[in-house]
Structures are given as C-alpha cells and as structure tokens.
Amino acid sequence: MGIKVENLDVLIVAILVLYLGRMVTKKVRFLDHYNIPHAVTGGIICSLVVALLQGGWDIRIRFDLQLRDLFLLFFFSTIGLGAKLRTLAEGGKTLAILTVVAALLLVLQNSAGVGIALLSGAHPGYGLLAGSISFAGGHGTAIAWGQLAADAGLKGAEEFGVACATFGLIAGGLIGGPVGGWLIKKYRLTPTTDSAGEAAEEPAEEPCQPVHIDDVLGTLLILAVCVTAGDLVNRYLSMQGLALPGFLTAMMVGILITNLADVFDKKLSMVAIDRAGELSLQLFLAMSLMSMQLWSLVGAAGPLLVMVLAQTLVITLVAVYLVFVITGRNYDSAVMSSGFCGLGLGATPVAIANMTAITSKFGPSPKAFLVIPLIGAFFIDLLNAVIIKFFLSMPFFAAG
C-alpha cells in the first residue's frame, strides 16, 4: 500500500517531528550534551518508523517536498539579510583560507574512498562515489555522477551513491555538535566582542520583546522579494551560460537589500528575520531527514559503514587540526569547525544546523554564519567538479 503525504500534511508531520526531536533530545542526556540538532533527532526517528512500516507491513510512505525547497530559499534569504558589508569584509580572508581547506578535504575524501575500494578489490569508481561525490556533494551530485557511472557499466552505482549521501547526511548532523562543543570547552572559548556586540544591538529585551504584526508582514514581503528576484537573476544567468543554485541568488538579493537599507537608513526587523530563518531551517531539515529512504541502505550496510567511518575520521581531523587552527583557534573557529563537519559529510543546511545548535548554547558567531554558507553554496561544488575529473584521469581508472 502506498501513501503520499503532500501539501500542508507534510508541514504538520514536520512540526510534529521537530517537537519529537526536542522532547527526545531533552530526555536523552547524551544528545543534549553533544549538541545534536532537534531536527536531526526527530528526522532520524521518523525515517526509521517509515522504514519499519515499509519493511514490516509493506506500507510505503512518500513525502511531497515542494514546501521543503521553498523553506530552503527562505532560509538562505535570511542569511543574506543578516550579512552587513563590514561582516563580509571581515570574512574575506577567512573565506579564502577555508576555500583552500575545502579543496584539500575533497582530495582527502577521494583518496580515502578510492584507497578503501582498491584495498577491498572493488572498482575505484565505487570509492569515488564514497568520496567527495556523495559526501561533500550530497544527493544531487551523487545521483548525477551515479547515473554516469551506471551508464559506463558500474552496477548499482546510483543506488550506492545515494546510500552514501544519506549516511553522510546523518553522520554530518551527529558529529558537528560534539566537535564544536569539545573545542569550545577544551580551550574555554567565548564569543568575540564584535559578535557579542552585533547580537546585542537588539539587547536583552529580545527574549520578551513581542514581534509586531508589521514586522512579520514586512519580513514576509522581503523574503518573497528575495526568492522571486533571486529566481529572475538565476534565469538570466542561466541564459548567459552560468547556472547557480537558487538559494545562492536568493542570498545575494538578501545581501543587497540589507545593505541598501543601511544606506537609506531603513531599519529592518532583525528579530523577525532571525526567527524566520530559524523556523525555515528547522522545517527544511525535518522534512529532509524524515523523508530519507533508509530501506535502500540495508543491502550495502557493511561496506557503507566502513566508508562512512573513514570519511567521518577524515572530516573530524580536518575540522580540528586544519579549520580550527588555521582560522585562529578562537570561538568563531570552533563554530566554523562544527559547520565544516556538516558541510563535508552532509550539506550546507546540516552545517547551519550544527552551528545553530552550538551558538544557541554558547553565543553568536556572525562570521561563521557568513563564511560557511558561502563555501557550501558555491565554492565547494565548483572545486568538487574539478577534483572529481582529476581523479578520473588517474591511471587506475583507465586500468579499471
């Protein structure tokens, strides 16, 4: 029996999943101590229930994810609306440094994946699928390259790539919080004065400060403009031969709007924008994780576990000994390390969820929330394409 959950029903399930995740995380001390995002906890539980229904009673549940994609655009619009030119300038050097680190990560991921494949006697193509294609690239990249590999004769390549991406999404959400929290506690780090100052612009009144209906309507209008204008920009660029992710152009429009508002001395309600961003992110993640098709992973569980453990080790070492050290060993560095774990194993929203879990407990980090999304939205995909092609040109692929 097949059940399709769509429209507002998906929203209802997602909200219930978030409540479930919050309740379980609070009751299970391990999850709370290691800063596991509520959406990750609830989403994994829901996907396990869905897999159990299919495996035990042949009840197949499918979710319509159109709302999820809209929430992603809203979320990145709020990231743009929070990006002031001063913060962009401060993040410039860090952005350049972490882009180089991201390139190194992609090389390490592919080296680990191909190395394990060759040692186990498998085709190196499976190792590449269990490298940067699926982990840093995510589901979209895994599907695209998996189809090409399957057409070239690599059996089950697409399914294997999707399975790796799914496991990576889970792992990225599980290790980012512990890594960031451990660094903060080990080195006794606190938010910088600038970060605390920016957060204090709408000060301690915020927890009890009501958001006026005009602020809500204005924020909804601005988000709609970001999404619509971003889509128009994306269509124009596509016609010029430059296709960008929709969430990146929406974020760019948000950056333009917030800085123009400063120029003309127009005040935006950052409280309402922050709340909209948090809500959009949580709903996007809940919808993504609750809709994972876990039953597709059972057949390759053994090899997948080895690959995931190897890639988890790689991203943890990179985050702790490269990202944290090179960016200054400060509070922002620890938050970025947490986000980098999500970026390298799952996707940009997982990185943001990791950083949100950290900052909600320890304090704000505007620089991390600017730099990590920019790397995930554009640079890592571009670098990934180049590095994948480099590995494909190596002798062992020609021999395979």
Rank of each mutant, 00 (worst) to 15 (best):
I3V: 15
D9A: 10
V10D: 01
L16Q: 02
V17P: 00
R22V: 13
K26I: 05
K27W: 09
D32A: 15
T41G: 08
G42K: 03
L48D: 12
G55V: 08
G56N: 04
D64T: 04
D64K: 01
F76V: 02
S77N: 10
L85Q: 10
K93C: 08
A96F: 15
V100E: 12
V100K: 06
A102F: 08
A103G: 11
L106D: 07
V107T: 10
V107W: 07
L108V: 04
A117F: 03
G125E: 02
G125V: 04
G140M: 10
Q147V: 05
E159A: 05
A163H: 00
L169D: 03
Y187W: 08
T192C: 03
T192R: 09
P210Y: 11
H212L: 03
L232W: 13
L244N: 07
L244A: 15
F247T: 02
A250K: 02
I257Y: 13
I273W: 09
G277D: 12
L281K: 01
L289M: 09
V298E: 04
I315E: 05
R329G: 13
N330Q: 15
C341N: 02
G346W: 00
T348P: 00
I358A: 15
G376I: 03
F378D: 14
L383I: 15
N384L: 06
I387Y: 10
I387E: 13
M394K: 01
P395T: 06
A398T: 00
